[in-house]
C-alpha cells in the first residue's frame, strides 16, 4: 500500500501526562511520530497536538482509532486530504565571518527572512514556511556556515470546519 505523510490534528484535555499517553500509545504499537507540536488552545483546559506520521491509509486509520480510544483525547482529525495551511519555523544561528556577512544579508533580503538577533560573532535568523520552504532555506544557508538550528514540528490549521 502506498505510504505517504499524514498530518494529524488532535484535541486533548490538558492533563499532565496526556502527551506521554499519546507518545506511549503510538510507540508501544510500533508507529512513528515524525514531528510534533503541542500547545494550549483558546480554552486553557484544552490543548491541540499536531503530529506528522507516515504510512498507508490503513495504518494511519489504525493510528487515529488507537488515539481515539484514549480517555483524554477529544477528537482526532486527519488534515492530509482537507484544505489546510501548514507552517514550520526554524531558528538558524550562523557564525559571522568577514567573508559571509554580505552573502547572509543578500539571502535574508531576497527571501524576506527575519534577522532577530545579530552580534559580532553570530547572527540568528527566523524563517517560517511550509516544509519545502524550510528545506530550501536550510539548503541555501548551509554553505554560509550554519552553527546550529532548531526546527519546530509542523503546525496546521483547517480552512473551515
Amino acid at each position: 500500500m502506498e505510504k505517504k505523510d499524514h498530518i494529524i490534528s488532535i484535541l486533548v484535555y490538558n492533563k499532565p501526562d496526556v502527551l506521554a499517553r499519546i507518545a506511549g500509545t503510538l510507540g508501544g504499537k510500533g508507529y512513528n511520530i515524525d514531528s510534533l507540536c503541542v500547545n494550549t488552545t483558546t480554552q486553557k483546559d484544552i490543548s491541540k497536538i499536531v503530529m506528522t506520521t507516515s504510512g498507508s491509509q490503513a495504518t494511519v486509520t489504525r493510528i487515529e482509532n488507537q488515539l481515539q480510544r484514549l480517555v483524554d483525547v477529544i477528537s482526532v482529525d486527519d488534515l492530509t486530504n482537507v484544505e489546510s495551511i501548514h507552517r514550520e519555523m526554524v531558528l538558524v544561528r550562523l557564525n559571522r565571518t568577514a567573508h559571509n556577512t554580505q552573502a547572509v544579508k543578500d539571502a535574508v533580503d531576497a527571501n524576506k527572512w527575519k534577522v532577530i538577533l545579530s552580534g559580532d560573532a553570530f547572527v540568528i535568523i527566523e524563517i517560517t514556511g511550509d516544509k519545502t520552504q524550510i528545506d530550501f532555506a536550510l539548503a541555501r544557508l548551509e554553505p554560509l556556515g550554519v552553527a546550529d538550528i532548531t526546527r519546530t514540528g509542523l503546525v496546521a490549521l483547517k480552512l473551515e470546519d
Binding site: D17, A20, R21, G24, T25, G28, L70, V71, D72
Partner: peptide, 14 residues
Amino acid sequence: ITGITRPCTKHNFL
C-alpha cells in the same frame, strides 16, 4: 505506577 501501567490500563489517575 501510573507510568508503568499506562500501556496496560484503559486509563489511570494520580
